[in-house]
Amino acid sequence: MSKLFVWNVQGFGDPNFLTTVRQFIRDNNPYIIKLFEPRSGYKANSVILALGVPNSHRIEASGFSGGIWLCWKNTITTDILLNHFQFLHFRVHNIDGSSSLVTLIYARPNAVKRNTLWIHLHSLSSSIHSSWLLYGNFNTTLHTVDRKGCSPNSRPSRAFQDLVLNHGLQDTEFQEPEYTWTQGDSYVRLNRMLCNTYWDATFPMLGHSTHIIS
């Protein structure tokens, strides 16, 4: 059964980064590792090699937009289906013979640029007829309770809500803090894991997931 490890990385400048990740890999043996917001530039290959995971695919960071890295072990196979500057879409073939579509999302902070994300996700969802998992930083909120201590003018995204409602997406249960971004006395949940109606609640990858948000 597949285990996945997801980490929002604020760059690789911390000298403890590799030590922490390698220790986690040794302790938990995940088959899939997903890193968001890496900005290591030319060091990317050496960082991935140091993780000890033989397979990888990445969307590089651009300007203020973070990158997406996907690493996986030889015990599973992964088909990369679509690269986009705000998401990576792929199919995972698990060791038990099952498979699932997964979309890793790192949305642009700018609402106008983020509109292209909703358009592409609507299009993807309309063509999917199998289990589908979406995870990442949507850089906006879905519910009013996703914000605490924020300006009264800050509201959930209607475009995000339409995506979830129109395509029957739902939150999954997973290990993550209630709020994934904080500044001063403001707390916001920007990260979510969603699945479609084809997703079985007992699907192996979900029940054995570990998520670390930094």
Rank of each mutant, 00 (worst) to 15 (best):
H84M: 10
N74S: 14
H84K: 14
H93N: 13
E176I: 02
V21Q: 11
N139D: 04
Y198P: 03
H84Y: 12
N45P: 05
N94Q: 13
N166Y: 04
R39K: 09
K43A: 05
D171N: 14
E176Y: 00
F174S: 13
G67E: 06
L81N: 08
L88Q: 11
W199Q: 02
K73V: 04
K34Q: 14
C71M: 10
G52Q: 03
I68H: 10
I25G: 07
I25E: 12
G97Q: 06
S151R: 04
A61I: 07
T78L: 14
L81P: 01
K34R: 14
C195P: 00
S126G: 14
S40M: 01
R189K: 13
T172R: 06
N115H: 08
I213C: 02
G67Y: 06
S99Y: 12
T202R: 09
Y42F: 15
S130G: 12
R155V: 08
N45R: 11
S209F: 00
S214H: 01
A201E: 15
T202S: 09
T77C: 12
L165M: 14
V102Q: 00
D14C: 03
L88A: 15
W199A: 02
P204A: 11
D171E: 13
P109H: 11
S2I: 03
N94K: 12
R189C: 11
A107H: 03
E178I: 01
L190I: 00
R22L: 03
K34S: 15
S62C: 08
L134A: 06
Q183G: 09
P30T: 14
Q86R: 08
D171G: 13
D14L: 02
Y179W: 10
I212P: 03
P30D: 15
P54N: 13
L82V: 04
N94S: 15
I119T: 15
E178L: 04
D96N: 04
T78H: 05
M205E: 09
P15G: 12
S56Q: 11
V53I: 11
H208D: 06
T20L: 10
V102F: 00
Y31T: 13
T144W: 06
K43L: 02
S157L: 06
S151T: 04
T197G: 05
S2D: 08
T77A: 07
S46F: 00
Y31S: 14
S126D: 14
N28D: 15
T182M: 07
Q183T: 05
S46N: 05
N115E: 12
R108P: 01
W69V: 02
E37Y: 01
F203Y: 15
L82Y: 07
K3W: 05
I68D: 15
G207E: 15
T210I: 12
W181V: 02
M1C: 04
I33G: 08
N153M: 07
H122E: 13
R58D: 09
